[in-house]
């Protein structure tokens, strides 16, 4: 259960997150969508206590993220940020093993190694486990970072654009796995995604943000509507029903319209 109470984050005079009030139930997959600069990533960082808030409060399972000890929170929330640059040379296995730090404090046990092996398997990384991250493609690296976050084995998982750099096959696989983590393991997963149709297809709940505030939230059916999406993105968006699901198309007429969908 995540409660965001009037969270505010400012950079200089710009209020990037401007009094967001949001309650996300435990269990379930929530997608945060919205245009660039809407404050999606910043909100995610505030929930994960990676940025300091300028006002408001965030509670995760009733724990205030600003006052609770960081190592206690690390066993409950795991977060992946967009940027995946590293200075030191690590193998995929080294990186994923870091995900066990909140539990092992660096003394890796056989149980930790099992978790690492499972995370590697989960993200199809076994053949790459001993490769160095700087020698891999962006998509492979992205999967390694997601594996690290999942290896942390927390109830709440926050992922900022986990589909970055992934080809359609891996993007679908990633979403299927996250769905499985929610359905089978009872995790609470919150994502920032750009592809509205991915959000529509896989989410239980969608939050649409604009200018630092939540504009609409609700089930995919409630949010994936032409008038809602058009005003969120400032772009005419049509919604069609394909195989019983809503699909958004947003390419201007004049050219053959393309339905962008991964499913």
């Amino acid at each position: 259960m995540i409660d965001v109470l009037d969270a505010v984050k400012t950079y200089g005079s710009v209020r990037v997150v401007d009094g967001v009030r949001l309650t996300l139930p435990a269990g379930g997959l929530t997608s945060i969508v919205g245009p660039n600069g809407a404050g999606k990533s910043t909100l995610l960082s505030l929930i994960a206590r990676l940025l300091e808030m300028d006002g408001g409060q965030v509670l995760v399972d009733g724990l205030d993220v600003t006052s609770t000890r960081s190592d206690v929170l690390a066993t409950r929330i795991a977060a992946l940020r967009q940027e995946n640059h590293l200075t030191s040379r690590l193998t995929v296995r080294d990186l994923v093993t870091f995900g066990r730090y909140p539990h092992s404090k660096g003394r890796t046990t056989p149980e930790d190694l099992e978790h690492v092996a499972r995370a590697l398997e989960f993200l199809d990384l076994e053949p790459l486990a001993d490769r160095f991250l700087d020698e891999m493609s962006g998509g492979q690296r992205q999967r390694a970072f997601v594996a690290m976050v999942l290896c942390q084995d927390t109830d709440v998982v926050l992922l900022d654009e986990p589909l970055n750099n992934l080809d359609p096959r891996h993007a679908v696989a990633m979403m299927e796995r996250l769905r499985a983590a929610v359905d089978e393991l009872g995790k609470t997963v919150v994502l920032v995604v750009h592809d509205i149709n991915v959000a529509a297809h896989y989410s239980d709940h969608i939050v649409a943000m604009c200018d630092g505030a939540v504009m609409v939230e609700g089930s995919p059916r409630e949010v994936i509507r032409p008038e809602v999406l058009s005003s969120v993105y400032g772009l005419p968006v049509e919604v069609h029903e394909i195989a019983g699901r809503p699909h958004a198309t947003y390419f201007p007429p004049g050219r053959p319209s393309v339905t962008f969908s991964i499913a």
């Binding site: 206690v72 200075t87 870091f98 730090y101």
Partner: peptide
């Protein structure tokens, strides 16, 4: 070792 991952990731892993 954890600090090698950078400020955000270290925080996320529970290092103050």
């Amino acid at each position: 070792d954890v600090l090698l991952l950078g400020r955000e990731r270290a925080t996320s892993l529970g290092v103050d």
